[in-house]
Design a protein around this nucleic acid. Sequence first.
DNA 1: TAACCTAGGTGCGAGTTACACCTAGGTGGT
DNA 2: ACCACCTAGGTGTAACTCGCACCTAGGTTA
Lengths: 120, 120
Amino acid sequence: MGNLSRFVEPVLLLLLKQKGRSYGYDLAGELPQHALTDAEIERAALYRTLRQLEENGNVASEWETDQGGPARRVYRLTPQGEAHLEEWATVLDHVSKSMAQFVVKARAAGSARSARRKPR
Amino acid sequence: MGNLSRFVEPVLLLLLKQKGRSYGYDLAGELPQHALTDAEIERAALYRTLRQLEENGNVASEWETDQGGPARRVYRLTPQGEAHLEEWATVLDHVSKSMAQFVVKARAAGSARSARRKPR
DNA sequence: TAACCTAGGTGCGAGTTACACCTAGGTGGT
DNA sequence: ACCACCTAGGTGTAACTCGCACCTAGGTTA
């Protein structure tokens, strides 16, 4: 099937909303549970998406060094980010319904060529 | 929001199933009614996707020159193409449900910050 | 000391997309 | 005759994105 969009951005926004604050490596572990498709999300894509979200003002970050181990860049949603998540929800609600409709149509009876055989 | 996948391929497969046979320019006119997102689908993407579907054996084409005007490359679904559409339906059914769940979660009450504080 | 886990990245070739542009048959207006 | 416009099917290419490989660095366990 190939190129299904992974919707990394909205999933990250949602995770940050739910968790309040988190960092890349931690988010990577929780992505599979919340992903919209079962395609794996690359760590590279994850980190770059977080960066881009910060550039656009949807999240803010700070370094956390007092938990031991390598430093963590801890992110949180900004108010703008919450609004952006809400926009995503609107869009995905619409797409979700379109897809459900698509599935119904795709499974509807016969093609135009072999129009309604197969009663019962 | 930017890069929402357009799902050109499954929509073309569905249109061809419904119409029996059709050609690029005609399909282009009907895409907006069946598209999964409201993002416009490029003509270039349309023609290239049809080509790729043919390369993979999901559609077959022949030239039609007896209708006046420029020649049309008329496509129809192959049996393999119908199976492929069914695969898409399965995948999109799943994605649709995941998205609906996402929307519910995204709109659920408050963020973790304002609800209860996390320990650790 | 080595192996392994956590943590956050970068480099880059391959693949994809968006926009502009091209060819060509046919019709209607002046 | 000439032009504008519609139908029809493309191609060229610069910019962008993605996937894979790879790198740095702190800390723990055997």
